[in-house]
Design a protein around this nucleic acid. Structure first.
Lengths: 326, 326
DNA sequence: GCGCCGAATGAATACGTATTCTCGGCCCTT
DNA sequence: AAGGGCCGAGAATACGTATTCATTCGGCGC
């Protein structure tokens, strides 16, 4: 493990010159720079991260707080975030949002272990964590947003998405509408519901589950199917619920889409699988992630600009569960 | 952002005493220790991670190199790793195993940014990366193993799993066996195939896909179903392939399990869903992860012991795709 | 020809912690 | 009673880098 001093010795210059030469500072002769680079290469020199972090007060690490929720959209977002951050020369440290992990996130922020934090699953429930962190570091929210947190936020237009679903139902003449949803804490869910409701002619029958899991989707749909006047079109607040709902219909022998239309939200990979063939609203997570990282990088660079609140369009993707031919 | 010097000033002691008191060293008077702790609490003091890392030459970070493969078992393992590492007071830095990310992993190792590395998706293809890293840091492999890498490795008994599948087919009188698999680089796949083949009475008809994706599973099964003497029982090398295969059967109107038995491998959550109801071999990933972290921690603690090669049992989970009632 | 300025590099320093070294005082033993 | 040993705490130092301060040297203008 060689240090910049070793490189300096080998190149016959001082340690400070090594630092300057490798950092690409102006005011270093071409000849000296070449000698330093050669020496560094020969010694396989890599600057020590801890020393650099101490000196520059920045670590190159970004914390990502994500949900433990069993929703494949979060792993997908993580993959995209990893790629995007990596492209910016940043490392990604991941926490799930258990309470203990939130402590870990706050600790890391206090310790200066990360330069910034991205939340993918924020809710007003973690306001204390947010305030603790935001006091020291730039914070960006992606996917879920929280009213009243003064930071950059990137979401998709969940409200418009919900409206589009209701419009789709209405245009096809479906009248007995159902809503299968879960806890209202996440902004995404609230907005989807609000959009759906405001575009419904009359209030849909609603089942609210305890969680956003496949199992909850199954049970929720069973309750809807047991109703005397059961719905002929159900909007599920996310795809995972919708997959469970689809399987509950399968089990009950209810034909989709003839007897029941089903729509989800997110467009996770499974929604497109033959077994489900699910109409859904596509979240543009790739763009969302890209925008979030861009905003964070601008903050890290010290740029000062008004808090951004980006809302990207989310198109309806038509598939067999709402009667598309094929 | 207060430092240990601030705490020292406030407590009326020296900086070294603060360090000793907070680290719980013996040889600090109870009274002094209490004063220091009080001062630290009042100032909300948290030791600076970079300074501590530089001084102790250990960062508290663990790198995890994982696959970009679209197999939910990897996100699951990440979740479990995160929890386990967090329990040990360690942070998790994640890389996908693209080439660029492998470079990033090697860089981080060189920079001393991580204290150890866990591979979840190693193959002989990344031997250069392994050697680069293992020269400096303890490395543990979990899930996939690589013959010839001298490091601790934790896997499940894929070979026995493969044998159990063949035995299950045989016991039910299924004779025209098929194998739907993919690239042979991962040890898991090679071992599963080897176990399956050695317990087959005659060679199964084999389709080898380009990748371990749902789509590849669909296309692979379509090829198997197009055969004149098509198999009545197919072993898929992992669950994602099997889900694709199941949907291909669904599309082709082939009844499972009457006309076709189907078995996967991993027991991802979706295998248990009604739409698939897939018999599979369960990988005990929770135990695997726990063992891997345990081994890594022992190495980090400087313990010296022979390289471990753990192989945990993987039970067959019977479901509807092989005719279980229900 | 002398002095000044700028460019290039070396020397010194700070970042915050953990640890080693040093010192002063107290107790115990002979 | 004196000396030695031990214990608790302060002083000093090292970790490796980036940056500021100091120095040297060459060139150029007057």
């Amino acid at each position: 493990m060689s240090t910049s001093r070793d490189v300096a010795r080998r190149a016959g210059v001082s340690q400070s010159t090594v630092s300057r030469a490798l950092a690409g500072h102006p005011g270093v002769t071409g000849e000296v720079r070449a000698r330093v680079q050669a020496a560094a290469r020969e010694l396989a020199y890599v600057p020590n991260a801890a020393a650099r972090a101490m000196r520059t007060r920045s670590s190159g690490n970004i914390g990502v707080v994500t949900a433990r929720l069993h929703n494949p959209i979060y792993p997908e977002m993580l993959q995209l975030l990893a790629r995007e951050l990596r492209g910016a020369g940043l490392r990604m440290i991941v926490w799930n949002s258990d309470e203990t992990d939130e402590d870990a996130a706050a600790d890391a922020a206090r310790q200066g272990m990360v330069d910034g934090i991205i939340f993918t699953s924020a809710t007003p429930a973690s306001t204390a964590l947010y305030e603790e962190i935001a006091r020291r570091l730039p914070v960006v929210l992606v996917n879920r947003t929280v009213e009243g947190w003064p930071c950059d936020q990137v979401e998709s237009d969940n409200r418009a998405g919900g409206r589009a679903v209701a419009a789709h139902f209405r245009a096809a003449g479906r009248r007995r509408l159902g809503l299968l949803s879960g806890p209202l804490l996440p902004s995404t869910i609230r907005d989807r519901e609000a959009g759906f409701l405001e575009a419904c002619e009359e209030a849909p029958v609603t089942v609210r589950t305890e969680a956003f899991t496949y199992k909850a989707g199954v049970e929720g749909m069973e309750r809807l199917l047991a109703l005397a006047d059961r719905p002929d079109a159900v909007f599920c607040a996310n795809d995972v619920l919708a997959l469970g709902a689809r399987d509950a219909a399968r089990l009950a022998g209810v034909e989709v889409p003839r007897e029941l239309w089903l729509v989800g939200y997110d467009d996770i990979a499974m929604a497109g699988w033959t077994a489900f063939d699910l109409t859904t609203v596509r979240q543009p997570i790739e763009e969302m992630v890209r925008e979030a990282v861009r905003l964070l990088r601008q903050r890290l660079a010290g740029e000062d600009f008004p808090r951004q609140r980006l809302r990207l369009p989310a198109p309806l993707v038509l598939r067999g569960s709402t009667g598309r031919p094929g």
